[in-house]
Simulated scan of single mutants.
Amino acid sequence: MARPMPALLLTRPEDQSERFARQLGDAGPVVISPLLRIEPLSPDLPSARTLVLTSLRGAEAAARLNVPQGTPALCVGEATAEAARLAGLDARAAAGDAEALYYEILSLQPPTPLLHLRGRHARGDLARRLTEAGLPTEERIVYEQTPLPLSEEARRLLAGAEPVVVPLFSPRTAELLAAEGPFAAPLLVVAMSPAVAEAVVSLHPAQCRVAPHPSASDMLALTREVLERGRGSHASA
């Protein structure tokens, strides 16, 4: 008989963690301990013919800041594109990371000026690189990402002896988790990209799997696989 799945620790903001847990379905014990709090900002936006969106929060900000309906939006991945469509934008998704989005934009040569809506901490330096490539791009910071400590429940979980599955979606979240370690529990990390995996090397995870593509669907599938294998590896005689 197999024991229950290993515990699952989710560190994204609470709404995203709850949605991910629902999508997983029967995931066994789940602890949600956000390592970032999202705080919306309301800067003045310059006029732009095309938006560049590298996160779901940027897409939400477009709606909050009254970007005109129908504005073209080039998005990092499908989840961000879906949020942009809900905001009334004409959204197109790239392959899931900032580098793929950069090359997608270069290939499309969209109408300029472009406007990148992003958080305080972002990778890829898209606005500068796109401008240098001949596509004038401005950027505005539309949300803060304030670090949060692990909850007491998460600390107890990570102090135990049983494996803990930890999906990590960004290098920044991975860095924040690594700064809270080391942990006694064996970590089964599911990383959205090699950069995310690199950020938790100092934690010496028992296992670190990188999603085949940096997409929400691949993270969901790989997390489910790691959970199920973890349950199978604890089968009793």
Rank of each mutant, 00 (worst) to 15 (best):
M1G: 11
M1K: 05
P6R: 04
A7F: 13
L8D: 04
L9F: 04
R19W: 00
R19V: 01
F20H: 10
G28N: 03
P40N: 08
S42N: 12
P46F: 02
T54H: 00
E60G: 04
A62F: 15
R64V: 06
L65Y: 02
P72S: 01
E78G: 06
T80W: 07
A81M: 05
E82C: 08
R85T: 08
G88M: 08
A95Y: 06
L108K: 10
P111M: 01
P113H: 01
A127R: 01
E132R: 15
L135D: 01
E139T: 01
V142Y: 07
Y143R: 07
Y143M: 05
Q145C: 05
T146Y: 09
P149N: 07
E152P: 00
E153V: 03
A154E: 12
R155Y: 14
A159I: 03
G160K: 13
A161W: 03
S170I: 04
A174W: 07
A174Q: 14
L176M: 06
P186C: 06
L187I: 03
L188G: 03
L188A: 12
V189Y: 08
H204P: 01
P205W: 13
H213N: 15
T223K: 13
R224F: 08
V226F: 02
E228S: 09
S236V: 15
A237T: 04
